[in-house]
Design a protein around this nucleic acid. Sequence first.
RNA 1: GGCGGGUUGGCGGAGAGGUUACGCAGCGGAUUGCAAAUCCGUGAAGACCGGUUCGAUUCCGGUACCCGCCUCCA
Length: 454
Amino acid sequence: MATIRLTNSKTRRKEDFVPLDPAMLRIYVCGPTVYDRAHIGNARPVVVFDTLFRLLRHVYGRDGVTYVRNFTDVDDKINARAADTGRPIRDITDETIGWFHDDMDALGALRPTHEPRATEYIGAMIAMIESLIAKGHAYAAEGHVLFRVRSYRDYGALSGRSVDDMIAGARVEVAPFKEDPMDFVLWKPSEASLPGWESPWGRGRPGWHIECSAMSYELLGESFDIHGGGLDLQFPHHENEIAQSCCAHPHGGFAKIWMHNEMLQVEGRKMSKSLGNFFTVRDLLEQGWPGEVIRMVYLMTHYRSPMDWTAEKARQAEATLRKWRALVAGAGQGSPAPAVVAALADDLNTPGAIAELHELAKAGDGAGLKASAALLGLLEDHMGDWTGANVDLSPWAGRLADLRAAAMATKDFAPVDALKAALLAAGVEVRMSKAGVELVPGPGFDPAKLDAIG
RNA sequence: GGCGGGUUGGCGGAGAGGUUACGCAGCGGAUUGCAAAUCCGUGAAGACCGGUUCGAUUCCGGUACCCGCCUCCA
C-alpha cells in the first residue's frame, strides 16, 4: 500500500498519513456559503480535495472514505440577498446549491458522502454552545453567546499567533459585552425580519464558525483524519473551529491533519470585481471551456502554491487532453501507474502526476494513461463529449480525398486547398499523407461551420 | 504593525545535496503537392549576498521584490 504523505498545516510539516481507523477514513472540507454562483476561486478546494478523495479511495477502498463538505445556508450575505430580492431564503439557498452541484459536476468532482446544510444542524449547534457555556468556555451577554478565547490555551496554534499579538494590530469588532476583544460570536440575536431559531438565549442564529464544529462532530465524531479548506480560512475560521471543538470535546483530537490550498489569481492579478477579472465557473463553461479543461488547469499547479488562471494555460490543457483522449479511445482496462500514484501520494503532487501521464502517453500506454488519469478525475468517459470525436467526419474526408486524387492528376490544387481551408476554419485538423486523408476535430471545432460549407 | 508563503530556462511548472524533470513555444532534420499531425535531434534555469560542504538551484542566515491572512471571503 502506498504511503501517503501530506503537509499538515498544524505542524507545518509533511507527515506520513496514518489513518485513525484504516477501515473508514474521515475527511471534512469547508464548503460554500450559498448565496451566489461559485467563482473560480471557490472551485479550487473542490477540485483539490476531490483529487485527494479519489486518491484515498484508491488506496483505502471505494467505500473506505467518508467525505463531508457542508453548505453554509445561514449567513448575513444570504439575508442581504433575500432582502434585496424579496425572495424567500430557502429559494435562494436551494437554487444556489443546485447551481453549485451543476458547476462542480461539470468539473468532474465526485459528490461527497455527506453534504450537510447548516440549517439542519441548529439543534446540534445549540447543544454544543450549551456545553461550552457549562464548561466555562463561553458566556451569554445581551442575547449573544461568545467564546471565551482566553479559556483555550492553544488558541492561535494553527495560524501561529498568540492572542496578544492578534490584539496588537487587529481590526476586531469592539462590542461592549465582550470580555476580551478577540472573543468571537457563537450565537447572535435575530430581529423579527431575520431568520432565527428559539434558543436558551432567545430567538437568534448561529455564528459562522460553530456550524463546522457541530456538523463534523455529528457526522465524523470528536476525532477525524483530515480537515481541509482554503488558506484564507485558516484564521479565524479554522482557529475558531479548533477552539470550539476541542473545548466541547476535550477527549477528542478534532482534525488530525489540516490541509490548506493556496489562493487563486487571474492573469497574474488578484481576482476581484473591480479589476474586471472576476469569473464564475459558469462564466468559463459558457465561454466554451470544457469542465475537464478547467479541472486540468487547476491540477497543473500544486495545491499549496498560488494558482494563476490564464487563457494560455487553458489552451494548453485543452490541447493536451485532446491528444490524450485520442490515444485513450478504445484502450482496454488498465491499472494506475505506480509513478502516478506515488506522485499523488507525495502531498498530492498533481503537476508531478501530470508529468507522469505525459510519460505514459509518450510510451503509448493508453490503458495505463486512462486508468492513471482517472485518479485525477481526467479522461473519464462521461467527460469527453467536448472533443467532438463523436462527430462523423468521414464524408468530408471522402470528398477531400477525391478532390486530392483529381488534383494530383491535373496539378490544380486550388479546389483541394479551398475545402481544406474551410475545414480548418471549422476547427478540423486536416492530415493528408500518402496513406490517405484523416480529419480530426481540433481546437475550436464547430460542427455548425461544417454544415455551412454545404 | 503581527503572522505566513513565494522568487527555477521564452512561458507554465516539479523533484532531488552530486546524474535528462515534464509540458508548451523555439531551432535543425525526416515526412508532405503545400500544410497539419507524427517521429528524431537540439539550445535554454534556479532574484541577490554570505555561510555549511569535496560539491547547493536544493540546507542555513541576510538583502531585495512579490503575494496571502489579520475585515465577508475558498
